[in-house]
């Protein structure tokens, strides 16, 4: 309980710090910390696979990508002159509506919640029979029961990779550094990028 509450409080504090920060570099670093705190809480909530992914993706790759973007696009955020009243109002109303919505939610960890009771028998029991004793139910669910989902998702990653290639690559050899280097050395002039 204590660990859970302190992690949640830290998450909230980090989120506020990110919102108030002008220095983008620091904000990106705090985003990494935020992801890591989120991952720790997921570990407490018995989702090691998600925590693992969040730590590797959110705190690792995503932080790196944002730092790379900062190196290319500038580190400072321009101070805004617009008043924050309207956004705060919008956020406040939306938040109040969502909190009102949570009042009907099943309580935390409730074994009688619809999430736990609707699929009968649960995937844990079913996978023991179907998967011939594959220990990690999450993997079984991901790759077998929801195989179509994961295929579509792999296709999304594929598409995103191709999209990044098309946006950032100027000519077919551009992402291959060895080729550009060779041509640069033969032409005896630096690349103008």
């Amino acid at each position: 309980m204590f660990v859970s509450v302190s992690i949640l409080t830290l998450l909230a504090v980090t989120a506020i710090a990110i919102a108030r920060m002008r220095d983008l570099w620091a904000a990106v670093m705090f985003t990494g910390i935020f992801s890591f705190l989120g991952a720790s809480w997921m570990l407490i909530l018995d989702a090691p696979d998600v925590a693992f992914t969040e730590a590797a993706v959110g705190a690792g790759i995503s932080t790196f990508l944002m730092l790379g973007t900062l190196a290319l696009a500038g580190k400072k955020e321009k101070p805004t002159t617009a008043s924050p009243i309207v956004p705060l109002l919008v956020v406040g109303i939306t938040g109040a509506a969502l909190v009102y919505g949570t009042l009907d939610m099943p309580h935390f960890g409730d074994p009688a919640a619809p999430v736990q009771t609707r699929i009968e028998p649960g995937f844990v029991e079913k996978s023991q029979h179907d998967m011939h004793g594959l220990p990690n139910v999450v993997t079984a669910l991901l790759a077998s029961y929801r195989g179509y989902d994961t295929l579509g998702e792999t296709a999304v990653i594929f598409t995103a990779g191709i999209a990044v290639l098309m946006i950032l690559r100027r000519d077919p050899e551009d992402c291959d550094h060895r080729v550009t280097q060779k041509s640069a050395s033969t032409e005896k002039k630096g690349r103008s990028s």
């Binding site: 959110g58 790759i61 990508l65 139910v137 998702e153």
Partner: peptide, 25 residues
């Protein structure tokens, strides 16, 4: 604990990083 939310969110995170990469590029 119910494995189904884990599976859904696992895929969501990875799709999230893919879209983030496109946005950043």
């Amino acid at each position: 604990t119910n494995p189904l939310p884990s599976v859904l969110m696992l895929t969501a995170i990875v799709v999230g990083i893919a879209t983030t990469a496109v946005a950043l590029s």
